[in-house]
Write a protein that binds this DNA or RNA. Structure first.
Length: 465
DNA sequence: ACTGGCGCCGGACTGTAATA
DNA sequence: TATTACAGTCCGGCGCCAGT
């Protein structure tokens, strides 16, 4: 089997007409987050099966997979062995078992089940080579009649990915596309990818799985990402992925991007949080972490009321430049704004009673609430500075980057300016002029919030003074 | 200053897919 | 079927850094 030359792949004109039809894949979030590993042929068979499910299907059928379809979809070339690979892939898939969380009356349980059953292969010399395969009945709640808590994306995003790890990471990040950020423990991610016993060194895992996926996603899919490492001492134990739309791919005329349907994590097992997230969906800088913290500190009812009020004011035409900042401010200063009900008493609120000054807790704020706040802070800094200074800083940025990179970072394809990212970067330049660092700002922020002075360790961790 | 744990890097080896 | 290419894995050397 021979992959076509990459330059041919990138030229969408060569793709045949029927593959231009949008093919959407739907998977329950639980399945996306399940623990399993496929090799590349198993992944191809599984993907083909998913493509054959209709959204209204109430039960699984026997799905017939033709070799020529697989070859066309994955842009392979027939070489006489491909049917053997397809067949073996399907057979391995039939033996493969996965672990998925399931809800039962007794709470969450881990389901350990097969994926596919009834693999039969056929060769009709004159007509076609194909095989019949069906899903295991246990997979039904994860693939059929999905009403909520599921991921949907255009299958063409993953067809060109050669590594099954990259496909899994694409799915895991696509879930959180609207939120823009996903935090995972290294151990969690390794479990999901079923590589717990492999990659004993984090460096290897990073090099072969994460960085590889980073390259693949940027090259082939509608999202790309950067990531930060969260350390416990010196060991990397957590990862924060920052998910960015890959505009080059979205706008390439291939319609890979489905803004109205593609992102799905608005529902959560925690109904309160999902309600708050839904209401703040369109706001800049809101993440699950932030909303959770609001809820934990001020109580659900108070936060809900404040968000609703803010949304109402926006719809009535009141100019609130930064809704998130406004809500935080209103929550912190109810006596000034008169906007909010009294914070609910701490007893009613299930607050995690961790002391706020442990290294762990401080790092949590650094990566979560502060990180979001800081982006808005930078943007405000840029917006509020003098025009002349602003243009000077933009020129400095131009000088820093090549023209291509500058356009890539700060311009949309239609030639308009991406003000958010430009303002953030101008904000950073302004901080440099003032000889302030993100760390300084964090110390101030933390002091204002908790009246606790903090110090950054050499390892990058924070501790209370 | 010493030590041990860790990340990073590059090289070597292995197995599998692609190719002739 | 033999060869080639490459992904995945393993390992050792190096340097950093926190704890002693």
């Amino acid at each position: 089997m021979k992959k076509l030359k990459k330059d041919k792949l990138d030229n969408n004109q060569t793709i045949k007409k029927d593959t231009d039809v949008v093919k959407l894949i739907r998977k329950a979030n639980r399945l996306v987050e399940g623990k399993y590993r496929f090799d590349i042929w198993e992944m191809r068979v599984f993907t083909k099966m998913l493509m054959k499910i209709h959204r209204d299907d109430e039960d699984f059928k026997v799905y017939r997979i033709y070799l020529h379809e697989v070859i066309q979809d994955f842009e392979l070339q027939e070489d006489g062995h491909s049917y053997k690979f397809l067949k073996q892939g399907a057979e391995r898939l039939g033996r493969r078992e996965i672990r998925v969380l399931m809800d039962t009356p007794d709470g969450k349980m881990e389901l350990f089940t097969h994926i596919a059953t009834g693999v039969k292969s056929f060769v009709e010399e004159k007509t076609a080579k194909y095989l019949d395969i069906s899903f295991h009945p246990d997979m039904k709640p994860y693939l059929l009649q999905l009403q909520s808590q599921f991921l949907m994306y255009d299958v063409r995003n993953i067809l060109k990915l050669q590594s099954s790890f990259s496909i899994r990471i694409y799915e895991l990040l696509k879930q959180y596309e609207t939120i823009g950020k996903r935090t995972l423990k290294v151990q969690e991610l390794k479990e999901m990818l079923d590589v717990v016993d492999k990659y004993p060194l984090y460096g290897n895992f990073k090099q072969r799985v994460i960085v590889k996926a980073q390259e693949d996603l940027e090259k082939f899919t509608d999202i790309k990402f950067t990531f930060d490492e969260v350390k416990s001492g010196r060991a990397v134990t957590g990862l924060v992925f920052w998910i960015i739309p890959n505009r080059e791919k979205q706008d390439s005329g291939n319609l890979l991007y489905l803004p109205e349907v593609a992102s799905t994590i608005v529902e959560d097992t925690d109904q309160e949080i999902s309600q708050l997230l839904t209401l703040t969906q369109r706001w800049e800088g809101v993440s699950k972490t932030v909303v959770e913290q609001w809820r934990n500190v001020y109580g659900f009812e108070t936060v809900l009321a404040q968000i609703k009020k803010t949304n109402k004011q926006i719809s009535e035409g009141k100019k609130i430049h930064n809704p998130m900042g406004f809500v935080v401010w209103s929550l912190q200063n109810p006596e000034i704004t008169g906007n909010v009900a009294e914070p609910v008493s701490k007893i009613e609120t299930p607050v995690k009673e961790e002391p706020k000054y442990t290294s762990k807790q401080i790092n949590f704020y650094w990566n979560g609430e502060f990180a979001n706040w800081f982006v808005i802070y930078l943007q405000n800094l840029a917006i509020n500075c003098e025009k002349v200074l602003y243009h000077k800083k933009v020129d400095e940025l131009r000088a820093t980057y090549s023209e291509k990179l500058f356009n890539n970072l700060f311009m949309f394809n239609d030639g308009s300016v991406n003000e958010e990212s430009l303002n953030s970067s101008v904000g950073i330049k302004l901080l440099e002029t003032e000889q302030k660092s993100k760390e300084n700002i964090f110390q101030e922020w933390f002091w204002n919030k908790f009246q606790v002075r903090i110090l950054q360790q050499r390892s990058g961790d924070w501790k209370a003074q």
